[in-house]
Design a protein around this nucleic acid. Structure first.
Length: 474
RNA sequence: CGGGUAGUAGCGCAGCUUGGUAGCGCGCCUCGUUCGGGACGAGGAGGUCGUGGGUUCAAAUCCCGCCUACCCGACCA
């Protein structure tokens, strides 16, 4: 077995999380509180996320743009709820160019207001709608209690902003992004099971009329909001004048949406799949899917490993070759395990003499006999491809098993609070309500989302027989 | 933002009580022996003791401010 390099999750989960971030060389804290330096491996993971999410956003018809980092403070102030929600978290530039600024400038905490200003300019008639935009950017929200990847003062994200002719179009699009972009990516690529639903009024985005959310259960039973999609109604259209002439020649206000996912997903990925040996990456996401490990400094081993890596690359896999034989085998194995590379191929003289190699799966625990298998050199590429496919779903299924185990159906607030100590509780929304949310909040428990009985997303919080998913959260 | 704890080599820590030559383990570099789950030996490099000020002949050590991290609360997509 691998030597202990991390604090075990059962001993101290937050400490384990920090250990993984550091030991897998993903990121470290920046010099200013709440900022982070994302290292090459963390960046590679984020780039994979970006690629997968971006492809889906484009498939949903949106185009990428780039808006400024600085926003005039007056823009924020136009939408009452929006300012109120964000002002405590704003970083404001008051001094620049060697003098005090006449109009203060905020560092964007999100870009609804600037997008609003320009969408108003670009939209004239109904033929300009819908306008579907997205940008990949950094944003700043001054955080009092930062946690690397999960809640940082500066973070990277994607923010989509759209304008539609009708409320129904806007509603459909917000829901479409939630399902076809976010849920599809998180379930199919990240292998993380989700609770998708609608936020209660108090958990809603500042300035939205509805917020849809993807909530995931972490390894310690707490919830993480992985992505949100908002219907903004006509709130921003009114204050920024985002209007158009309809086919009758009448001036109409548009209906807008916004939606985003951030580097927080990296934290979610760590806490949803990681184990006591480190990160475990689902193959579809992993920057390196397979590492070919040269076991000993032996000419035959080097050459055969190189050829095998090349063969798998040609077959379309993302492969790294580890031929650093000056570092001991055990150390290198541990390192790749920490980094969560899904499959390892060990090429050593003992196996080669028999025409075989050892294939090791990261998703299975150390005592699982299926974890290591021996396969003929000729069948190796296929065996690895099969292992990758199996690992993708095995990680997903392990996460589903945890949800099943830690999700309790309850019928009282005290029971919900008790269940939230170790996981999620599902409780009829009629038993909670606004007062119930207050009572839960006293125990640091919140309503993560509202769902219909079958788990689908309700059209409004007023539908009958809704259930609330409640939990402690990050 | 309030309460608590901490900051000494890349990482983890001792030294501080009682002021007087900057230490240990891991990692790193070189050489040799090793090599199928964090190898071993020998030699070596690496420090404005978080930062600014104060007390003192003398400060890692005593005093004050600030910064940063962790825990608990409040706040927050």
């Amino acid at each position: 077995m691998a030597a202990r390099v991390l604090t075990p999750r059962s001993e101290d989960f937050p400490r384990w999380y920090q250990d993984v971030v550091a030991k897998a060389e993903m990121a470290e804290n920046g010099p200013v509180r709440g900022t982070m330096v994302i290292r090459p491996y963390g960046t590679a993971i984020w780039e994979r996320m970006q690629r997968e999410v971006d492809d889906r956003i484009k498939a949903a018809g949106a185009a990428n743009v780039s808006f400024p980092l600085f926003i005039p403070e007056s823009y924020l102030q136009r939408e009452a709820e929006h300012v109120e929600g964000f002002s405590p978290e704003l970083a404001v530039v008051t001094h620049a160019g060697g003098k005090d600024l006449e109009e203060r400038v905020v560092v964007r905490p999100t870009s609804e207001t600037v997008f609003g200003e320009y969408m108003a300019k670009w939209i004239q008639g109904h033929r300009d709608l819908p306008l579907l935009l997205n940008q990949w950017a950094n944003v700043v929200r001054w955080e009092l209690r930062p946690r690397i990847f999960l809640r940082t003062t500066e973070f990277l994200w994607q923010e989509g902003h759209t304008a539609h002719a009708t409320e129904a179009d806007a509603r459909d699009y917000a829901l479409r992004i939630l399902h076809e972009v976010y849920r599809d990516f998180m379930v199919e690529v990240l292998g993380i099971p989700l609770f998708v639903g609608r936020k209660t009024a108090r958990e809603r985005f500042a300035g939205a009329i509805n917020t849809l959310t993807c909530e995931a259960m972490m390894g310690d039973g707490k919830a993480l909001q992985m992505g949100t999609s908002h219907e903004l109604g006509q709130n921003f259209a009114k204050v920024f004048g985002i209007d158009y002439l309809d086919s009758e020649g009448e001036l109409q206000l548009t209906w807008t949406t916004s939606w985003g996912v951030s580097t927080r997903m990296i934290g979610g990925l760590i806490m949803a799949h990681g184990d006591d040996d480190g990160l475990r990456l689902p193959p579809r996401l992993a920057p390196t899917q397979v590492v070919v490990l040269v076991v000993r400094d032996d000419e035959e081993c080097h050459e055969r490993a190189r050829l095998m890596a090349e063969e798998m690359r040609l077959a379309g896999m993302r492969v790294s070759l580890d031929d650093r034989t000056e570092i001991s085998f055990g150390r290198r194995s541990t390192e790749w395990e920490l980094k969560g590379v899904p499959v390892r191929v060990e090429v050593g003289p003992r196996d080669l003499a028999q025409g075989v190699v050892t294939v090791v799966r990261r998703d299975l625990p150390g005592d699982d006999p299926a974890r290591k298998s021996v396969t003929g050199v000729v069948e190796m590429a296929q065996a690895v491809a099969d292992a990758l496919e199996a690992a993708q779903w095995s990680l997903h299924d392990q996460a589903v098993a945890r949800v099943t185990e830690r999700l309790a159906d309850v019928s009282s607030l005290p029971d919900a609070i008790e269940a939230a100590a170790t996981g999620f509780a599902r409780i009829p929304w009629s038993l909670v309500g606004d007062e119930g949310e207050d009572a839960l909040a006293e125990h640091a428990v919140t309503v993560r989302c509202l769902q219909r009985a079958d788990g689908s997303v309700p059209l409004s919080a007023d539908e009958p027989d809704l259930v609330a998913i409640v939990a402690r959260s990050y």
